[in-house]
């Protein structure tokens, strides 16, 4: 009897915890969206930000975030993919390899505020790049590198060995096999890596704040400062002046992140289907 009771309690706890997790998600999404959606208008999305002049739009932040994301990806994606190729296709177990893997794990674990401090002292001050789009992008590029490498490596390793063997048996060398067989098969997985990185970049605040700066303007060159949407939300939340704007900005962020999540799941499914032949 006692055993049955314990089992029932544990079962209830398992259900409750899972429901709690899902409920937390819906509470956050629901609360922010309900308060935020009414404040979103075309005017809000397309005007610039100059509170003194009565302009409270987020156009500059949207463009700033997109430029920051684009520049970061241009820097980080090739490096990340090639690093993953080395780790997955070429590296042989060695002391050097474990050091390399450990450093990737460490990079993944470093808190974003430390990326902010590093970016500030190295890119902004030491390399004299100032608070700028390029300082922000370089800092973020290092930050997303581990995520890119790991996800790409997983995609490469999910390509069956038989694909490689078939190609090699037909007389293709390793490099041809890599570019003609392995990489094309892994493209949806690599796309997943890129989409997940986009999410990280768009949501990042601390590392952007101290490197790209906070000037709410559309940067015309890479050496101008900008303010990302996440940093903008931080300002609005901290100042507590206009909650409507803050809710609306948070809503935009959530919509973008949710869309990216859906896209990442879509590409991951394509990879699965392609490799299992279903």
């Amino acid at each position: 009897m006692k055993r049955k009771l314990t089992e029932k309690i544990l079962m209830t706890l398992l259900w409750l915890c899972t429901l709690g997790t899902v409920a937390a998600l819906f509470l956050i999404l629901g609360y922010v969206l309900i308060q935020g959606l009414p404040h979103i208008s075309l005017r809000f999305l397309t005007t610039s930000y100059a509170p003194g002049l009565g302009l409270e739009g987020i156009w500059a932040m949207i463009i700033g975030t997109l430029l920051l994301m684009g520049l970061t990806l241009v820097i980080a994606v090739p490096a990340g993919i090639f690093a993953a190729i080395y780790l997955s296709e070429y590296a042989k177990p060695s002391r050097f390899l474990s050091v390399l893997r450990f450093s990737i794990e460490c990079l993944a674990g470093i808190p974003s505020i430390l990326y902010g401090l590093f970016g500030f002292t190295f890119f902004v001050v030491f390399l004299k790049l100032q608070f700028s789009l390029i300082s922000g992008a370089l800092t973020l590029a290092i930050m997303i590198l581990p995520l890119l490498i790991r996800t790409t490596e997983e995609a490469l390793q999910s390509v069956p060995v038989s694909f490689r063997e078939g190609s090699l048996a037909l007389g293709a060398n390793q490099l041809v096999t890599l570019f003609r067989i392995v990489l094309p098969s892994a493209i949806p997985g690599i796309l997943t890596a890129v989409i997940l990185s986009m999410g990280r970049i768009i949501g990042e605040t601390a590392a952007v704040y101290y490197t790209a700066g906070t000037v709410p303007q559309v940067p015309l060159t890479a050496s101008e400062s900008t303010r990302s949407l996440a940093v903008h939300l931080y300002f609005l939340a901290k100042e507590g002046l206009d909650q409507g704007q803050a809710f609306a900005s948070a809503t935009i962020l959530i919509i973008i992140i949710a869309a990216l999540n859906l896209a990442a799941q879509g590409t991951a499914n394509i990879l699965n289907r392609r490799l299992t032949g279903k």
């Binding site: 997790t21 899902v22 937390a24 998600l25 956050i28 609360y31 922010v32 308060q35 974003s112 999410g199 768009i202 949501g203 990042e204 605040t205 996440a230 940093v231 939300l233 931080y234 939340a237 909650q243 803050a246 809710f247 948070a250 962020l253 959530i254 992140i257 949710a258 990216l260 999540n261 799941q265």
Partner: peptide
């Protein structure tokens, strides 16, 4: 859904907590 929860930016969590 859990992946989505993981993807929500920390500043949004903070804002939610604050309000």
């Amino acid at each position: 859904l859990i992946q989505l929860l993981a993807g929500i930016p920390s500043v949004v969590f903070g804002f939610f907590g604050l309000v």
